[in-house]
Amino acid sequence: MSADRHPAPDFPAWPQYDAAEREGLIRALEQGQWWRIGGSEVDSFEREFADYHGAERALAVTNGTHALELALQVLGVSHGTEVIVPAFTFISSSQAAQRLGAVAVPVDVDPETYCLDVAAAAEAVTPRTRAIMPVHMAGHFADMDALDKLSADTGVPVIQDAAHAHGAQWRGRRAGALGSIAAFSFQNGKLMTAGEGGAVTFPDNASYEEAFLRHSCGRPPTDRKYFHQTSGSNFRLNEFSASVLRAQLGRLDEQIAVREQRSAVLRRLLAEIPGVVPQGRDERVDRMPHYMAMFQVPGLGEQRRDALVDDLIARGLPAFVAFRAIYRSDGFWETGAPDTTVGDLARRNPVTEALTADGIWLHHRTLLAGEQQIHDIAQILTDALAAL
């Protein structure tokens, strides 16, 4: 270690687990039915997850990408339709629509919150638009008031990509209580995890019933004669994963409380570092779970940003480059891409272009550390920027 480097902070591990997960796995094992149709863990988790998020119903599925795909299908997204998505997001947001034959239409994001720019979304609505998909980036809600008005004005439903937003609150209401379908992820890095998994929350029972059929190959749970009522696929979650997720949900509130406290300190410290701009926060978000601690170093450029992230990792910080604009990946253009070019989309999405080049995030496990470690993060970033 060079003389100018401090010892690496000791951050909590992720995923976290204890006896609750062990007991749940044994409970699932010993019930004798490991499939959701015969077991009880998935059913119990769905009830608990729906109640926690203020939703009428919840459906557990195989992963977050499938959650989006299923939700879009319930909303009538299919070949020839369009889905408005943020240009700055993980590519599953667009691919879920593209896999259904729809065209994904990327629009820019807000420079403060990194969430969907509602004015840009409004300009992108056409007669073919079937859904508007805000992404609650890093656990920060998109402007749901403005999106609800846009939906009412245009007749286009909203589907929330809430993969980062477990337990988040917009003016006192969680994603399931906002009147629109929301899709969640339980992939290994998410705020709740079983390695993989996902869930969809529904504001009404009819949407849930259709989704249940489609997530189980179009087959009702009581069918014994193979009468498949709709098209669909096998998106069913297994009993073992559900038992783990029940335990993960049980400790989520405590973890969010710690991350809220630590994030307030970290944002203040980051803002004091010359050239560093932390993700902003709308005051209407009265509870943010902080999937990641995000910030920008405007003007740094992608090559130097990448070098900075490498140095932060070498100094002991679990740092990552921010998402790349979805239209700057070859996979976006394989199917369901708009009739335009990368250059044209780049001109229309300047905030996304900047985040692609100078955005950085830190794993949310850093926000579960002690306050001294939060100060260490700021010092390490200050030292790394000076070295750069």
Rank of each mutant, 00 (worst) to 15 (best):
E82L: 08
H363T: 14
G80V: 06
G64H: 13
Q16Y: 01
A325T: 02
R315A: 09
R57I: 03
H290R: 08
F295E: 13
L270M: 13
Q372P: 02
R284A: 14
N238H: 10
I273H: 15
R268D: 07
Q98R: 12
V285G: 08
V200T: 03
K149W: 12
V321H: 14
V105Y: 12
L72S: 01
G250L: 08
R324L: 06
V107G: 03
I374T: 07
P318D: 12
E353I: 14
E283N: 08
T335A: 06
Q373S: 15
I26E: 12
R36S: 03
F186C: 08
E371R: 08
V276G: 11
E371G: 01
D18T: 05
R347F: 03
L147H: 08
R305W: 01
G232N: 14
D148V: 10
H79Y: 09
A163N: 13
L308V: 00
V125F: 00
V61E: 11
G316S: 00
H290C: 13
S44A: 15
A322F: 12
F186I: 03
D148Q: 14
L308W: 02
D306A: 09
M133V: 14
A369T: 08
T201C: 09
A102W: 03
T352W: 09
P289T: 10
V74H: 04
T89A: 15
R57S: 04
F184A: 12
H228L: 15
D339N: 11
A337P: 01
F320P: 07
I374L: 10
A319L: 07
F320R: 14
L355R: 11
S2P: 05
S78K: 12
T222E: 15
Q169Y: 15
G359R: 10
R219D: 02
R171E: 14
A354P: 01
L270P: 10
P289D: 11
G301L: 06
E209N: 04
L381M: 15
D51K: 06
Y114V: 14
Q373T: 05
A58K: 04
